[in-house]
């Protein structure tokens, strides 16, 4: 597959090549129906001296179910399925269910990851300008810029990096801070 991607890049003109390459990437991402990954996250906020670390598991199940379960230092679980979002904090006895449509900021953040995992380019483009850049060998980097002014007030840019069909990182920049999530396959 790698060879085919490179081939496509060589043959087409730059813009067309990128579009083609993007579809190729999306197809290879979409081919993975189930994922179970571990993540570590560091949230850097300008008001804080040091970033706040988090870790947990990330599960994906096509077509649209995504679960982000933070295990440490807090127990928090976000489950997205279709248009619904379930937020649970067992350590605080909190359980809330939302419609994603009612939480535009949250929806944008969710779709950035979910759209990537699903290989659903139209879904990504509903919320973002999508650019594929910085390809080296098998590694790729997607740059997502929110199309909505309202979202841009809190999120300026999301960088999704990956290796082949495996996303490896999501950096979310906004409010003068950045949240860096590193992803690796895990139990």
């Amino acid at each position: 597959m790698r060879r085919r991607l490179t081939l496509a890049l060589l043959i087409s003109g730059p813009a067309l090549a990128q579009e083609d390459e993007l579809s190729q990437l999306m197809r290879s991402l979409a081919a993975v129906r189930e994922r179970r990954d571990r993540f570590t996250e560091e949230r850097a906020i300008p008001e804080l001296d040091l970033p706040l670390p988090n870790e947990g598991t990330l599960s994906w199940s096509a077509p649209d179910r995504l679960e982000k379960h933070t295990l440490s230092p807090i127990d928090e679980r976000l489950t997205v399925s279709g248009g619904r979002l379930l937020y649970e904090r067992r350590d605080r006895d909190v359980r809330r269910e939302f419609s994603l449509a009612d939480q535009p900021e949250m929806q944008a953040l969710v779709e950035a990851i979910r759209g990537t995992l699903a290989g659903d380019l139209p879904a990504l483009r509903r919320h973002y300008e999508v650019a594929l850049e910085g390809r080296h060998d098998d590694a790729w980097r997607l740059v997502l810029r929110p199309t909505s002014m309202r979202i841009r007030a809190s999120v300026q840019r999301i960088l999704v990096t990956g290796q082949g069909a495996q996303p490896t990182g999501v950096d979310t920049e906004g409010h003068g801070g950045v949240t860096r999530m590193r992803i690796r396959p895990g139990p």
Binding site: R43, I45, L48, L52, N54, P73, Y87, L109, S154, H175
Partner: peptide, 12 residues
């Protein structure tokens, strides 16, 4: 709260 998913709200 800043550690949680509500961080964007709290940062605001």
């Amino acid at each position: 709260g800043l550690r949680s998913a509500a961080a964007p709200l709290l940062a605001r």
